[in-house]
Simulated assay, not measured.
Amino acid sequence: MPYTKEEGGRLNNFAIEPEVYRAKAPTQAEKRNYVILAVLAVLLVGGLITVAVFASSAGAG
């Protein structure tokens, strides 16, 4: 763990803060990828719900 020295020679063992930076806006390709992933996630969840409905109704009949 890195230490910093204060005036008078005392050691300070607090964490060193990382450099702060501004986030970049997503590019068109990244936005397209986000939309594709969102559609796939909705299809996956919808499919899981459909399977659960059919599986629960199959056991009741």
Rank of each mutant, 00 (worst) to 15 (best):
E30N: 03
V42S: 02
A29Q: 11
L43R: 00
T4I: 05
V53A: 05
T50V: 09
V45G: 06
L44N: 01
N12M: 02
E17F: 03
R32F: 11
T50S: 14
G59W: 03
L48S: 09
A52Q: 13
L43Q: 04
I16M: 07
A38V: 04
L37E: 14
E19N: 04
K5L: 11
L37D: 06
K31D: 05
G8C: 03
V39G: 00
V35H: 03
A38N: 06
L11D: 06
L37P: 00
E30I: 05
K24S: 01
Q28T: 02
G46T: 10
R32D: 15
G46V: 04
M1T: 09
K5W: 03
I16T: 01
M1I: 00
P18Q: 08
V53P: 08
G59D: 08
V51F: 15
P2L: 01
A58G: 05
R10W: 02
P26T: 06
F54A: 07
L48V: 12
A41N: 01
R32T: 12
Y34I: 06
T4L: 08
G8V: 05
E7W: 08
F54L: 01
K5Y: 13
E17G: 05
P2E: 06
V35A: 11
L40W: 12
A38G: 04
A15V: 06
K31N: 10
R32L: 13
N12E: 10
S57R: 14
L43S: 11
F54W: 12
Y3W: 04
Y21D: 07
N13C: 11
P18I: 01
V51Y: 14
F14W: 09
A25N: 08
P2I: 01
K5E: 10
R10S: 12
V42M: 04
E7G: 05
L44Y: 07
I49T: 09
A55L: 15
V39L: 09
L44T: 12
V45I: 15
K31Q: 13
M1A: 15
M1Y: 13
A15C: 09
A58N: 04
L44A: 10
I49W: 01
P26L: 07
E30S: 04
R22G: 03
F54S: 00
Y21I: 10
A41W: 10
N13E: 07
L48M: 09
V42E: 10
L40S: 01
V35Q: 10
I49R: 00
L44V: 14
I16D: 06
V39Q: 09
T27I: 02
V51W: 14
